[in-house]
């Protein structure tokens, strides 16, 4: 077991340093990259927090959809193969439910302020 701070806390500390202290000292292209860097660390912090539950839910959903077990990557590759060779139709309702749920969880980590996520008709409010 690692000592405190947690990985999420360390990443947040670095993001806050970039936002509050580094970016005000930067200009132009470097300031832009500073903001991108801070956003990247915000993604990492959200992934540390939400990633394990999201991946567990995705894996369970993939197992149910495909009727087999495997790592998340192996299951996603299998789903891609079945879509490509036509064994699963892109408009299959069970597939649709799976893709909606996994994509919502993915974007909640990657880009939670993106308008397509914020206003998604699939989000329960």
């Amino acid at each position: 077991m690692m000592d405190q701070p947690s990985a999420a806390e360390l990443v947040t500390a670095v993001r806050e340093f970039i936002e509050k202290h580094a970016i005000p000292q930067l200009s132009g292209r470097t300031a832009f990259h500073g903001r991108v860097a801070a956003n990247a660390l915000a993604i990492v912090a959200r992934e540390l927090e939400q990633g394990p539950a999201a991946e567990a839910a995705e894996t369970a959903s993939l197992r149910a959809l495909l009727g087999q077990d495997g790592t998340p990557e192996a299951l996603n590759r299998e789903l891609c193969r079945r879509l490509r060779d036509g064994r699963i139709d892109p408009m299959d309702p069970a597939l649709g439910r799976h893709l909606v749920a996994t994509t919502l969880a993915k974007v909640a980590i990657d880009q939670p302020t993106y308008a397509g996520f914020v206003h998604s008709p699939h989000r329960t409010r």
Binding site: T103, V107, D110
Partner: peptide, 12 residues
């Protein structure tokens, strides 16, 4: 993933 959410919003 932004485009993935747009795609599932349109397709499903």
């Amino acid at each position: 993933s932004e485009t993935e959410i747009d795609l599932v919003n349109i397709l499903y």
